[in-house]
Amino acid sequence: MPERRSPVDLLSPVSRAYGELEPPSEHPRWGMVVDTERCIGCWSCGVICKSENNVPLGMWWNRILTEGDGLDVPTSEHGHPEMSWTPLACQHCDNAPCTKVCPVQATYIREDGVVMMDNTRCIGCRYCMIACPYGVRTFNWGAPDRPNGLETGMVEARPVGTVEKCTFCVHRLEEGQVPSCVWSCPAGARIFGDLNDPDSRVSRLIRDRSGEMLLEEKGTLPKVRYLPARRRQEL
């Protein structure tokens, strides 16, 4: 049995460079920007998330909402169709309701701002799912169902009876790589970086294109920000 190596170490220099995190500040606070103008609702980010994190069938850490009447179906206000997409995973709230309600601190905020799960501690009360306004947490309801039994991914599976969610791919951050969904977005709609560094790409985008918070009024202070769509110029 050959001794295994980190999937990051095995990347070619070119690929590895592509995934490098911007050099972070001293005390990084990781955040993500999603450009809704560029997002084409392709679900690559959702799918790679499943693959990267070995998320079973029926469960999604990252989903793409259609701002419309149905999946990829536009709304039509006075015969004028409109449609856009809003990818949605854990917002890594600075003021995270989930961490507040967790009776055992199984979900907690790391110093780098990542809202993390400790599945060895979680008692499975699902209070965090109640508390999360974004519906991004999923419970392990039973033995995991995988496509034809195929185990995928670069992290361990979570035990039954506990809750899981987006981790910002901390296992990749530790190795200086952007999260998998950021790597795999074909439209360049996902940008990742250090919110504490005012010159990081994310900070600049949030400033210049007024990055918005989802459900801002709930005061959860998400670290995922959404860039609004550009204004259309008619013919």
Binding site: G58, M59, L65, L71
Partner: peptide, 9 residues
């Protein structure tokens, strides 16, 4: 918003 949340099973 559609398609909603993942059911879990």
């Amino acid at each position: 918003l559609p398609p909603g949340v993942s059911v879990g099973t």
